[in-house]
Design a protein around this nucleic acid. Structure first.
Lengths: 330, 330
DNA sequence: CTGTTAGCGCTTTCAG
DNA sequence: CTGAAAGCGCTAACAG
């Protein structure tokens, strides 16, 4: 009810209020609070301003500063199509990016979903980031909308996606597997990404001198997934290894194998992608593949800071290497 | 390089530009674009303005509108302590809330992590939401910082948390289980929440006339989790059901049981909380408990819209009921 | 060293 | 029906 300061109707404290309270002019307040090095303010005056500001709880009003020409500290992240925020990889990168940009004095905010971009105008970001890949037309549209630099948060996404599939194949080959399949997710919106990974798996298989992995779809429903896996093994009895599109698909494959009495890894080895935190908890524990994005995130945050400062620059690419995280399923 | 509109240095298009292009005054532009009903603008003039605006790609500049006194359409979500955005339940509620607020013309943006709240000033939100519960002192601080209404996004959180534990106990009792344990997560920051659920489980057990569930911790490490589960069963041999703090802990319990040769549900039944999408994929598929938050989200979005409009109001509470989602593990 | 002032882009009276 | 002008809160150039 009456929690301190919770009154929504309370007038905002302005720099005029601080000036009056401190008995100086608004310019002096601005000089002190912004530490203008070209002015030398006596310590007593400075202190008076600081005290008055603290006493009143003064916070400069963002819109006014921005209107005056200050550089915004807001970085807006837009992820059209990523309808659920708990997507593990994307959310992980976005989370770390938020922390990393803060070191540059920037505040990353994430507008979830984000269709209807038109009206998000009073955000006034310094930079807009998006989950769509580099060449997407949306980038141009956004740039026009916001009149600020727009960049893909996932530069060189294809190579990044491909790297994990290659690493999967290499790991399975190193484990002695020769006849592989590629387990694709059923959700149609992931089809394009799955194709990128499948192609990379094919290329890695060719390089290793083994047959190209056959692609099959893993339905969302557990019983249907079991049927799909059994059908796949009947059609390709010599199959001994499965590259799953990601850990989530791999979980379904493991469940399907367990339901069908197919021993993993004795009959088939299974490997996922992403190193999901639940991977260690499956039966058997899921082998997977991981890319180290820490270095990328740090570099990309610096790149965002450059964009925010008005400097054009090439973004650092996502890592194009992945390494296996071997567990019991291979 | 030269994607259309990607030039960061390009000057913003202002309402003056549109007025000049259309050959009218800035006031007329404003009238037309804001559909001011008190003015009657001839259709030809109106069309000239609309055309000029479209041709130039004009977008009114948010900060200037806000400075003029317009109501912000931004709702800022702050989640201190929620360090990883892929937390399933919170992310789910936040995602749906973003969609629901959009129906009220509001744009929810999520500042991840969000320590150092001081400098996020040029956001100018209409409302600030936070993940901390109702009485938290942070609410007052934020209200002072932003001079706008601040509310917890999870009103009456305790009852919400408790409901799921009660539903777990009731489900297990209905399945004929009598000697229960409460499996708590090892992460200390979840301890308080775990205590709320454990107490609710105790209360439900008392109401059902069975012994109070004993609390034990499930370590993150799989081998350690197995040891903990075996120790628990040795100490309480008559144990026949486990309420896990959430599905994630339940996954660990299932893995521990599998590793230790403890049949689920024959020897012990296991039930989680949250209806995590991977629950159907465990071995055996995990029974869980779910609260229907759709109605809450819709009502809460309306409440946020009220706050944004400057009307004080009581928030709708989170649901205080949960229902079981029975699967193979119970 | 401090105060006055112009002006960012927008909406909205108030005159014409 | 259209145009001129004020003012939101802030910063920075310019006087004093």
């Amino acid at each position: 009810m009456s929690s301190p300061g919770a009154d929504p109707a309370r007038r905002r404290v302005t720099s005029t209020d601080v000036a009056r309270e401190a008995g100086v002019s608004r310019a002096t307040v601005s000089y002190v609070l912004n530490r203008d090095s070209r002015q030398s303010i006596p310590d007593v005056t400075r202190q008076k301003v600081l005290d008055a500001s603290a006493r009143l709880g003064y916070r400069p009003y963002g819109p006014a500063r921005l209107l005056r020409g200050a550089r915004s500290s807001v970085v807006l992240m837009l992820t059209p199509g990523l309808e659920h925020a708990s997507d593990f990889v994307a959310a992980g990168i976005i989370t770390s990016l938020g922390a990393a940009t803060r070191h540059h004095g920037l505040h990353l905010v994430w507008q979830l979903g984000a269709e209807e971009l038109e009206t998000a105008i009073d955000l006034a970001p310094a930079v807009v980031l998006t989950s769509v890949p580099d060449g997407d037309p949306l980038i141009g549209e956004l740039s026009e909308q916001f009149s600020v630099p727009v960049a893909s948060a996932f530069p060189h996404l294809d190579a990044f996606l491909a790297a994990s599939a290659s690493a999967q194949v290499e790991h399975l080959v190193a484990r002695g597997r020769r006849r592989l399949a590629f387990a694709a997710p059923a959700r149609p919106e992931l089809g394009a990404t799955a194709t990128i990974r499948h192609r990379a798996a094919n290329a890695a298989a060719a390089a290793a001198g083994i047959p190209l992995p056959h692609r099959f779809e893993v339905p969302d429903d557990r019983a249907a997934a079991g049927a799909a896996l059994r059908a796949e093994l009947e059609a390709h009895p010599e199959l001994d290894g499965i590259c799953a599109f990601n850990d989530e698909v791999a979980f379904a494959v493991l469940a399907a194998a367990a339901d069908s009495g197919i021993p993993v890894p004795a009959r088939i080895a299974v490997i996922g992608v992403d190193n999901h935190p639940f991977g260690p908890l499956t039966c058997p524990a899921l082998s997977t593949v991981e890319s180290d994005v820490d270095a990328f995130v740090t570099q990309f945050a610096a790149h965002v800071a450059q964009l925010a400062a008005g400097e054009a620059a090439e973004p650092p690419p996502l890592p194009d290497q992945a390494h296996a995280v071997p567990r019991a399923s291979t």
